[in-house]
Nucleic acid binder design. Structure first.
Lengths: 148, 148
DNA sequence: TTTCGTGCAAACCATTTGCAGCAGC
DNA sequence: GCTGCTGCAAATGGTTTGCACGAAA
């Protein structure tokens, strides 16, 4: 059984209905390269490119639905809209955010993640479910621009 | 010369005008306990409690102004509004966010910060200006509620 | 006196919501 | 057939903006 099927089966077991809209949106996230984090608008564009018409209301509702079921991770890059990425356990989900052009790239650092896990263990009275690390600065391109 | 005076002097040197509104808002952040991160609404309430009337427009403009001059740090806790805290170099600025009640508390972990610094150093082609670590989960109170 | 900053009200824009109809099961 | 999900359009709410006036330097 492939990933999509497994996920859908799981949602059905929880009592949710599987509509074509939910399936299409899920598929898009599953087939997205690791480094992508879509905004609602990005997602709408991709859907249109695939000739899929889903209302904005449903799109937002589905994003919230998938996120609340742990399938998507909600991200905030300091912009006025949210981004979403597929929430796989082994996917890196730490980000470099360029304060000049807004470019957001992923990074992963074994040591840092281990430190984070240790730190999380030491938190008393707090049950850790997820963590995110954000580094703000200037990307290679923008460093050049500002120097010039 | 105290901190406020120093900061104001610095802003004036940059060519900005020092208005009573900017001074009042800056003072509030300087006198805030470390663990506070105000939303625009919080700030408005504090201003009113101090009998200071500042329009919402100016309030937002001043927050942006102070943040763009490195005096405030802009924070995102996954809510629909931003939070701000005074941007002191030695202030911890990493957060535990309760996914159930939204309670946000600060934490600091020497080891984790050192790891973060190391990780930042290893980033090629990226000039690090700031970083934030967020841990999502359930606070002591909400763990109880959910178990019950 | 010259700008810059402020207040007001209207505009913006991402996201949410009420409701009627349709689709999953 | 029951009920949850969708689409539409209107509402919401935090934040931004145009403009005329007031204040900093």
């Amino acid at each position: 059984m492939n990933t999509t099927k497994k996920i859908i089966d799981n949602l059905r077991k929880k009592g949710y209905r599987i509509t074509s809209q939910r399936e299409k949106i899920l598929e898009i996230f599953l087939h997205l390269p690791d480094e992508y984090h879509l905004s609602a608008e990005d997602l709408q564009i991709i859907l249109l490119q695939n000739n899929v018409k889903i209302s904005l209301a449903t799109l937002y509702r589905t994003l919230k639905f998938l996120a609340s079921n742990g399938l998507l991770r909600e991200l905030d890059f300091g912009e006025d809209h949210k981004h979403y990425e597929y929430n796989s356990a082994n996917k890196p989900h730490h980000h470099l955010i360029c304060l000049s052009c807004g470019l957001t790239t992923e990074f992963n650092d074994e040591k840092l993640l281990n430190c984070a896990k240790d730190a999380a263990l030491n938190l008393s009275n707090f049950q850790v479910l997820d963590y995110q690390f954000k580094i703000f600065g200037l990307c290679a391109n923008c460093q050049g621009k500002i120097k010039a």
